[in-house]
Design a protein around this nucleic acid. Sequence first.
DNA 1: AAGTCGTGGGC
DNA 2: TGCCCAAGACT
Length: 358
Amino acid sequence: MRDICPDPLTLSDSLLDWYDTHARRMPWRVPPRDRKSGVMPDPYRVWLSEVMLQQTTVVTVKDYFHRFTERWPTVGDLAAAKDSDVMGEWAGLGYYARARNLLKCARQVVSDHDGRFPADHAALLTLPGIGPYTAAAISSIAFDLPHAVLDGNVERVMARLHDIHTPFPVAKPELMAKAAALTPQSRPGDYAQAVMDLGATICTPRSPACGICPWSAHCRSRKLGTADELPKKMPKKTKPMRHGVVYVGRRADGAWLLETRPDKGLLGGMLGWPGSAWVDKSTALPDVPTPAAAAWRQLPGEVRHTFTHFHLHLCICVADLPLDITPDIGGFVARDVFRPSDLPTVMRKAFDLARTAF
DNA sequence: AAGTCGTGGGC
DNA sequence: TGCCCAAGACT
């Protein structure tokens, strides 16, 4: 079978040729032509985009990336930002530990690296929120160092190219070795983006467009007809159902009763409505302490939301609160200051349902 | 080293 | 509708 995978250099060259004419334009990316003429991307923008792109689609990221770079043009600006401003700007993107680590990382780059991202892969790995993939992405894309990127796209491409049937994530070391063997010394930054573009636009999870793939002549699974059944994955567990209550309180002057959630755990560090823990059975709900003594009324209907590993049914209680009340939990956010867009999606859903009751 | 950690879109 | 998936990191 060696004949269909002849030479790593042939493969990387053919992919780079494809990328020269098919590279997707993105706000954080330097097109191949500009890069060839010496233009390098801003490491801050590469880092920011890569963190946002972790488990998140390009389409979703674009608006967030624009808002972040407009508001905080440099890593120094971001490092100086208020935590609540960054968390609010991240709201809706999900995986909120990324936002907390984003701030930690920015401040560490300022304090430990003179405000400049290190090019070195090992140094990048020590920064919060930068793991093996993101370190390789930054060092290759921003600094043109030949580190192999292994994300979901590359895993899929390698599994098909080499017809690897070992299920993920068991196959990861093997896939990494394949990806590293193909990464060229020349134009590693463009190559990293090219191989991910290939997975995102041609070697897609369903119905790969093998007919127009620059690697089709060298692809083992293409030859064997197994591309459609790759990559193999471990079976997934079914998500349990959880139940909870949130309290949406509005003071007479229009201020909303909110809390900042603890840094650890689900929605950590995010703004939200006070409420119960989210438990397996709804029978334990009546004993929840309310955030303020008031005539809370339960709304008909409920909020449904699905997280990574469980479904949630959220019961909504609302109340009008007097001006002189002192809440037991959380604090009031003035009507003019409160931005619903600062809420994570599940809390935004609760707000959208609750506001109809006022 | 499995489990935890969001969300929106596609089929 | 329910399930799959998306440029993973952290514990």
